[in-house]
Design a protein around this nucleic acid. Structure first.
Length: 524
RNA sequence: CGGGGUGUAGCGUAGCCCGGUUAGCGCGCCACGUUCGGGACGUGGAGGUCGCCAGUUCAAAUCUGGCCACCCCGACCA
């Protein structure tokens, strides 16, 4: 009998087996069936991710290939990220501005490596008008409306910004310029995934101009540290800071710094980058300034950015088979209250109690949703908010009103307990803090358990298949060896981590001398 | 952009191989009633240009061609 049920369960057409399982009163299998809303992480991680993004109502695919619709719940998470980051940028002296979406094509050819890096994935605007198709079939591009100079939809804004900075900067007194912009950009990607890689995405890009190399360098490091701080204290995702190898460097940068995080499937995700641009863009756009001493010199530059990809990071770093697990600091809903009642007689009393709890928590700055919809059952709501990763759930029913209690459940551990309403607010505040640190600790533990020192290339080739994760290995510093590793193992050098100790060794591939271990992983 | 797969109601699908009634089923949705402490139940109901365009045929969800979209695997990337 059990075998039959399991088969039914695995069969996608098993819808009717609900009744069937009921009829033989097999409660256990019934529950297994009901929980089967998401694909399990172990079963198929990328399917789990795709399911979750859709089912938690974060985003949908658009009819336009590679583009996504960010739905209110997903966008609310992004807005919370924006608010936190924006404050951090302001606190470090930056101001927001906005530069245009469209960039003259010629701007891109000014900086040689920049154009080489982005040319392959640019959307181009060639015309400015449509007209009715003379053959009567819809609408066509008007061939008479061809642009003199074609425009590129920004894949990043260095060129348009440095062309503008030229007009802003004459003297050292005009420096530094510390500007950030929140915008969308388009990179015509071959293969896309919601939040992780889409043709259009939202991000912020900081663009700063400095009088000295030292100052620009300091800014580059400062901002990668801001990102690391944000990742760990807000996203609750531990990150490694480091410097990219030449081949992974931003097109047009002298150095690229990054934060790298480990996802639950053992793959690395680059979560933010900060570029030391040297004088490359100043030279390309002829941006010079007169120094205190009266000398004329090119301006020093940085740029740095994080994107809606961070929403994907959040999902993959913390989620479980029941759905999202959101860090309380970024959760659009921190606490959901679910009323439980029998019949309309009890309803009013319970709803009143729920509203009271809501206002008490709201007064303490907690974002609360009281879900008093009469159209779905408590059990349904429990599952729904677990899917959406709401950190704390409070259930109130007649029994609670009688005992002056509530039932609290925390999303990260799924533990449930009953507390007195007298200490409810304190308990919730404590829980929110605890969940924030707990999921961070859990992520650190996961990273520790999946970070390996490796010295043998043969061993590495096997292990990267069996136990994907972060690998620390010696590398001889040549692009040839880097390329070889990439080709043979699909893993890449993610970065040369800041925190790695000086440790003379031998390159695991060539045996040539190496001064430190680098971080190698398969990456998104 | 290369290899593979899939497209039938909002979602999941049967039917397609072998063309022929009114395209079947589950979830969801709507109405009413009973329910409500872990995804409730009953009764009734609505919902489909079978991805799009052409072709073959007396007749196309079904056969042929083209196109589009999505998924998986590669190359490229935040």
């Amino acid at each position: 009998m059990i075998i039959i049920l399991l088969n039914l369960h695995n069969d996608k057409r098993s819808i009717n087996c609900k009744n069937y399982t009921n009829s033989i009163q097999n409660i256990f299998l019934y529950e297994v069936f009901m929980e089967k809303v998401l694909t399990g992480r172990k079963e198929n991680y990328s399917q789990w991710y795709n399911d979750l993004v859709i089912k938690a109502e974060m985003a949908d695919n658009s009819v336009v290939r590679g583009c996504m619709v960010i739905k209110p719940y997903g966008f609310a998470i992004w807005e919370k990220m924006q608010a936190a980051l924006d404050k951090m940028f302001k606190d470090t002296g930056h101001s927001n501005a906005y530069f245009p979406l469209l960039i003259p094509k010629s701007f891109f050819s000014r900086e040689a490596s920049h154009v080489a890096g982005f040319a392959k994935e640019c959307a181009v605007v060639t015309h400015y008008r449509l007209k009715n198709d003379p053959s009567g079939k819809g609408i066509i591009v008007d061939p008479d409306a061809k642009l003199e100079e074609e425009l590129i939809i920004r894949p990043t804004s260095e060129t348009i910004i440095w062309n503008t900075y030229k007009n802003w900067i004459q003297s050292y007194r005009d420096l530094p310029i510390l500007v950030n912009q929140w915008s969308n950009i388009v990179r015509w990607e071959m293969r896309t995934r919601l939040f992780l890689r889409t043709a259009e995405f939202l991000w912020q890009e900081g663009h700063t101009a400095h009088a000295t190399k030292e100052e620009a360098f300091e800014e580059t490091i400062k901002m990668i540290n801001v990102y690391a701080d944000f990742a760990e204290n807000w996203l609750a995702i531990p990150v490694l800071r480091g410097i990219k190898t030449a081949s992974e460097r931003f097109a047009g940068a002298l150095d690229t710094y990054c934060i790298e995080a480990l996802m639950q499937d053992g793959k690395a995700l680059q979560c933010g980058t900060s570029h030391f641009l040297g004088q490359n863009f100043a030279k390309a756009f002829d941006v010079k300034f007169t120094s205190k001493e009266g000398a004329l010199d090119y301006v020093w530059a940085t740029s740095w950015g994080v994107s809606t990809r961070l929403v994907g990071a959040l999902i993959m770093a913390h989620g479980d088979d029941n759905g999202l697990i959101l860090p309380p600091k970024l959760a659009p809903i921190q606490v959901v209250i679910v009323p439980i009642y029998k019949g309309s007689g009890q309803m009013q009393e319970v709803v009143d109690a729920g509203n009271k709890i809501k206002s008490k928590l709201t007064a303490m700055g907690v974002s609360v949703k009281f879900d008093d919809r009469d159209t779905s059952s408590p059990g349904f709501k429990f599952a729904e908010y677990e899917l959406k990763g709401v950190p704390v759930r409070i259930a109130v029913g007649p029994r609670d009103i009688q005992n002056n209690t509530v039932e609290i459940s925390r999303r990260d551990t799924l533990e449930k307990f009953v507390v007195s309403q007298d200490i409810l607010v304190d308990e919730v505040l404590r829980l929110l803090l605890d969940i924030q640190t707990n999921i961070y600790k859990k992520a650190i533990k996961f990273r520790e358990e999946n970070t390996f020192k490796i010295d043998s290339y043969d061993e590495f080739k096997q292990l990267i298949e069996q136990k994907p994760g972060f690998y620390e290995a010696h590398w001889d510093g040549t692009p040839e060896t880097e390329e070889k590793i990439k080709e043979e193992t699909k893993a890449t050098i993610r970065c040369l981590p800041f925190n790695s100790v000086d440790e003379p060794g031998k390159c695991m591939v060539t045996g040539k001398p190496s001064s430190q271990r680098v971080l190698i992983a398969r990456a998104y």
